[in-house]
Design a protein around this nucleic acid. Structure first.
Lengths: 223, 223
DNA sequence: CCGCGAAGATTGCGGCAGCATTACGGGGAC
DNA sequence: GTCCCCGTAATGCTGCCGCAATCTTCGCGG
């Protein structure tokens, strides 16, 4: 396993590299964002550890840059800036985890494992379809910048479909997205939600269509 | 390595779990098909050991169910029903091996190794043929990024063929992919599906051809 | 090269499963 | 109370899909 560590405090960086190597992890280290960007282009990392305060800028700005190149390498932010709001900020720009300094190496390892266990994140921060923008993290929806508020269940259906726009989403997947295990469902509730959602999207002029694939599921695409 | 054992005889199940654990194999055990299906959705198994006679139905019916979700985890059927015709039956619905009770654990291990030695995963995340991309896990199909929705049975046929593109797929294999154990078929329904599928693919300009291998099966390739 | 039988291809038809829509009412939020 | 979400169920409809009839292709033997 190979990590990229972006951290300007030499001592911490060395200590961390040493600790990780005991777990059989190879670590590349750099102190500047510019170098980091170059390194990610030349190598393939299993994960990236990122400090926020860096000599040539705010570490977080690195995340959208990287994501824009289509890279979905997990990123864990390591920083002294550990206020709740700052954590939200970090996760919302696309970090996979956020760990405040000081931290135990054991906790870092555990979070690393957790992050690597996940399937490569399909979760974009912002999905746009038709005249519509959907933020799956905050569960908010806008049509041409005008917020559209939808009932909870319809919203969940929409997000589940939007995350895989232009691809079929199985019925069972949708049910799993909207209902948890306790909530039984013994009618066509899902169909009803789809129907009502369609009507609302039409009224709002969202410019998207939800197609049914008989016996399989549904598919969302621009109309 | 992790296995799923579907077996209602408690004693046999316990003995087997114990024996397998000595080979470093982790075994999940369940006695009912319904639970088994849930488990396969939540976990990823290297192989599945399946009894035929189960409290909630014929074990074999589980195989098409599972295959239909796009899972091609190897399945070994373990059963007292060990007549030649019954073995054919089992293998034809999509089992990878069929082992009659009683059996030696050593033989099971050998068969397991054999099954796992086969092409690591037929389950690519994305299969591309001609101008077409197929996602066998999510059962979605696109032609030059434009989603193509197909009826369920035609879709299943296409996916089964695409997974083994450029290779002949036996008629019986296709039938197993499309029909479950209960559903009898006494006409040329499969041929009809192939025919309608060909037409749809042509209309969509998919750039692929489905050839017939007389008396054997079908073969999908770029045209 | 021709003829024949078997396998496959195609297509219309009809039944019915699955979906869309909508009205209704319980229930929670305010 | 009032509003609205949301599960339920009734209704109507679409189009999938099994069937079978008919036509075409293939491979073999003479």
């Amino acid at each position: 396993m190979r990590l990229l560590l972006i951290e300007d405090e030499r001592e911490l960086a060395d200590a961390l590299s040493g600790a990780l190597s005991k777990h059989g992890i190879v670590t590349d280290h750099t102190t500047h964002l510019a170098d980091a960007f170059e390194l990610t282009r030349q190598n393939s990392y299993d994960a990236i550890l990122l400090d926020r305060r860096l000599p040539d800028g705010e570490g977080l700005s690195f995340i959208p840059m990287l994501r824009r190149t289509g890279t979905d390498t997990p990123i864990i932010v390591l920083t002294a800036r550990n206020e709740p709001l700052e954590r939200v900020e970090g996760l919302d720009v696309g970090a996979d985890d956020y760990l405040g300094k000081p931290f135990l190496v054991d906790e870092l390892m555990a979070r690393l494992r957790a992050v690597l266990r996940r399937p490569p994140s399909l979760t974009e921060l912002q999905i746009s379809v038709g005249r519509m923008a959907i933020d799956p993290l905050h569960l908010s929806v806008t049509v041409e910048s005008i917020p559209l508020d939808l009932p909870r269940r319809e919203l969940l259906v929409l997000v589940a479909l939007a995350k895989r726009k232009d691809k079929t989403v199985l019925r069972s997947t949708l049910e799993a997205a909207v209902y948890n295990y306790e909530e039984e469902i013994q009618s066509n509730a899902l169909d009803a939600h789809i129907s009502r959602l369609r009507k609302r999207l039409l009224d709002a002029g969202a410019g998207i269509a939800i197609h049914n694939i008989r016996g399989v599921g549904y598919l969302l695409k621009e109309e």
